[in-house]
């Protein structure tokens, strides 16, 4: 196991008007030189202790990094892929010692679980599903949902993992008659699952019974919306969407995220809040992540922007560092850090306060 060189760089300068601050605490350097595609944080048991580790994905290599003292990181395992490149890491909550990845070229062709042998000495890969996979999401209680096929042959499947990471059981959900773009859990409701579809509908499933409960058409102002988070409060469903195709509005600026409220009983919905870029900032949503009440997005301009969903406005901007645009951003699932990645493989860990 080779120790990788990491470094702590200077804290970047911030716009004093923005109340949030991002402090750079650590940097992981990718020595492979291949194109970096994703990052995630997960728990991994090392020598009897569960450690908050970082997983990095390049096109053909996924690596697990364990924390050392003083914000240094050591690469302990790597999984190699020869034929199909990695598209994304699929974080599965409530599970340790396992990472899922989606592989493919433009579309997902395979989902694999990455593990280690019981003695911890060799890496293992298990094929979970293959085919024309459209959407995938890790769910609470060691579950993973994926949809494959299109229209009449669309299949929506839940895989539940055993504690040792093996695939325990599979269950099918009733498919909607339109292609699913994304899935989202409903916070606090472990049996509910949402999906957004190509026809700008939000569908609701009961995960216990597999029933498709409702199809709700949302405002057509923004096409191809991605659902990031949902919660139910006082009989209403609140949903945070991002709008990759949103056009700039002269009055509002660029809407990147939006909070909508849905009455699932009547299927009526309305917009509650638009989360736009501050004046003077240009760019559309490219990629992003929502955790608790914080949303982070990489914009087409190469900048990362963060919104406090409760305050309703952008709280921090992170311009490109070292002349390199940002290409992906994730909130850490193991603490409150922000993981920001560049195409060349460098991952920056920020503390957001």
């Amino acid at each position: 196991h080779s120790a990788e060189q990491t470094e702590i760089a200077e804290v970047p300068a911030w716009d004093s008007l923005n109340p949030g601050t991002l402090q750079l605490v650590s940097k992981l350097k990718n020595p492979s030189g291949s194109c970096s595609v994703d990052v995630s944080a997960t728990w991994w048991e090392i020598a009897g202790f569960k450690e908050p580790c970082i997983v990095t994905a390049c096109e053909y290599v996924v690596s697990l990094w364990k924390p050392l003292d003083a914000w240094q990181w050591e690469k302990i395992y790597s999984w190699h892929f020869t034929e199909v490149p990695v598209l994304q890491i699929v974080a599965v909550p409530d599970i340790s010692n396992l990472v899922c990845v989606a592989l493919g070229n433009l579309e997902i062709r395979e989902i694999r679980a990455l593990l280690c042998s019981p003695d911890g000495k060799s890496e293992k890969q298990v094929l979970l599903s293959s085919g024309n996979i459209k959407a995938v999401l890790g769910l609470a209680q060691r579950r993973l949902v994926s949809s494959s096929g299109t229209l009449c042959d669309q299949q929506v499947e839940i895989t539940t993992f055993a504690e040792d990471g093996g695939s325990k059981e599979k269950q099918l959900l009733m498919p909607p008659e339109e292609t699913i773009l994304t899935f989202a859990e409903v916070q606090g409701m472990q049996e509910a699952l949402l999906g957004t579809t190509i026809m700008n509908n939000i569908v609701i499933w009961n995960l216990k019974t597999g029933q498709l409960l409702k199809k709700i058409h949302i405002d057509d102002s923004y096409q191809a919306s991605v659902c990031h988070k949902a919660y139910s409060e006082m009989g209403l469903l609140f949903v945070v969407l991002s709008h990759p195709c949103a056009k700039e509005n002269e009055l509002l600026g660029s809407p990147v995220f939006q909070l909508i409220v849905i009455n699932p009983k009547t299927t009526l919905s309305m917009g509650v809040m638009l989360y736009c870029l501050p004046h003077g900032q240009a760019g559309r949503f490219l990629e992003g992540d929502v955790k608790d009440h914080f949303a982070a997005a990489v914009l087409t301009s190469g900048t990362i922007a963060i919104w406090d969903l409760l305050l309703g406005h952008c709280t921090a901007l992170l311009p490109p560092v070292s002349g390199q645009n940002w290409s992906f951003v994730k909130w850490s699932g193991t603490d409150s850090h922000l993981l920001a990645g560049q195409k060349d493989g460098n991952i920056f860990v920020y503390r957001y306060t």
């Binding site: 509910a192 209403l236 309305m270």
Partner: peptide
């Protein structure tokens, strides 16, 4: 926004929709 525009609200919407879907 006005909650009244969303129609009658049920706190048990998930259970009610699940029962309706079983029929």
């Amino acid at each position: 926004c006005n909650k009244a525009d969303l129609g009658p609200i049920s706190l048990n919407w998930f259970e009610e929709l699940s029962s309706e879907a079983s029929l």
